[in-house]
């Protein structure tokens, strides 16, 4: 390891936990439901710790962490699909697991969005990532990230409007 690599060594991991931990936990809860949130979070942090000595750009730590969390969330969804539990409907809207890590009503609706919009909205509002960081996490362009957030919001609003006028709490079946 060279001297210069040491000079911009990443901050103590403790600071990473303090700074990004709560946001990552909420992100996990929004992605996989409160019940599995801690699992997703712990797997994310352990994986980050394993790779932490290879981090060179301290400024990119946040989007790196959320990329890991996004992957772990997908792993958990896959595991759930492979070993479905009897009572547990793998359909995202059914994710009404209680536990108040995130306020569930609105996030259950976010979970029902198409995958890209769901991820973009969650990263934007729950994790407070910039459009550029969202683009890094989703491996897409900044305009695409911005569009996904916007489309997601529009859809949420449209559905809220539809629910209000039909008096139904269920997600309406709507064209994309």
């Amino acid at each position: 390891m060279t001297l210069s690599a040491k000079a911009d060594a990443p901050p103590p991991f403790e600071r990473v936990i303090e700074l990004h931990g709560p946001g990552l936990l909420r992100f996990c809860a929004a992605r996989v439901g409160s019940e599995r949130a801690e699992d997703c979070f712990q797997e994310t942090m352990l994986s980050a710790l394993r790779g932490y000595d290879r981090v060179r750009d301290a400024g990119a730590i946040r989007s790196w962490l959320y990329s890991i969390a996004a992957r772990k969330a997908i792993d958990i969804h896959r595991a759930r699909a492979r070993f479905p539990q009897p009572v547990d409907d793998p359909e995202p809207l059914a994710a009404t697991h209680d536990a108040p890590v995130v306020e569930d009503e609105i996030w259950a609706r976010v979970r029902a969005l198409p995958e890209k919009q769901r991820q973009a909205v969650t990263l934007r509002y729950l994790a407070d990532l910039s459009h550029r960081e969202i683009a890094e996490v989703m491996q897409t362009s900044e305009p695409a990230a911005r569009r996904n957030v916007f489309e997601g919001l529009r859809r949420l609003r449209r559905e809220a409007g539809a629910r209000a006028s039909h008096g139904s709490g269920e997600s309406p079946v709507q064209g994309a």
């Binding site: 909420r26 995130v102 306020e103 809220a160």
Partner: peptide, 16 residues
């Protein structure tokens, strides 16, 4: 409406 939606999305930030 969009503003309201954005606010309620941000409001779920508390973690005890």
């Amino acid at each position: 409406e969009l503003d309201r939606l954005e606010r309620s999305l941000r409001a779920s930030e508390e973690l005890d």
